[in-house]
Design a protein around this nucleic acid. Structure first.
Lengths: 103, 103
DNA sequence: AATTTATTTAGCAATATTGCTAAATAATTT
DNA sequence: AAATTATTTAGCAATATTGCTAAATAAATT
């Protein structure tokens, strides 16, 4: 049985995955590109807009997915990646809340 | 003469420094500890609350400072580090704004 | 002036991250 | 069934990050 995580433990793990994912400029840009294209794109369309190889992009996308910042759907042989905007805003704001008086 | 940066270039540089600084759990925790102690602490007081060596802490603090998330004042032989909460909130929110409809 | 206290700098080793190319897989079209 | 298209996996090299210890600096105390 996997150890059950408390609310706070889960949050800490989320913060870590999310902030690590956001630490790389290209990954931040992938999120912006997804947003600007309506939230959803195939792997190939994303690759076209960045200056690195497909395998490198695959890895960046996987990191974003593991952080829960994007989701994937396989449609025939294409992978459709979708921005999870609410989770991005939710987790980062949840951390920022610590510092925000007006909370 | 140093090249003059446009508004957007400066923002991108800020985002990069800030998100890189926030990528490490201990550095995020340093900010929280500073906050919980009223915003300002000496290097030695910070070191006491973390499980790593002073030189390692010095480096983390320098990264936070370069990101503009804390400032330093030398008072006699002590270094006083101060949380720059407004800048933390300002820069992260400025990036998040891209994703926030309600903006 | 010597010692103590507070802290940084230098430099190394271990680990993690990033980027690449080549090969593999899996679905689709010919 | 062979070829094409979309994409991932494997594995390597370069670079960056993190942590450490030892040495250096700088101010204060004895």
């Amino acid at each position: 049985m996997a150890k059950q995580k408390t609310r706070g433990e889960q949050d800490l793990e989320d913060f870590d995955l999310v902030f690590k994912a956001l630490a790389h400029e290209s990954r931040r840009n992938i999120l912006v590109v997804l947003l600007s294209r309506g939230g959803s794109m195939t792997a190939g369309d994303i690759v076209k807009r960045f200056p690195f190889s497909w395998p490198t992009m695959t890895r960046h996308l996987k990191q974003l997915e593991q952080a829960g910042l994007i989701s994937v759907d396989k449609i025939s042989r294409e992978q459709h990646y979708t921005l999870k905007k609410d989770r991005l805003l939710g987790i980062v704001n949840n951390w920022l809340k610590w510092f925000d008086n007006k909370q």
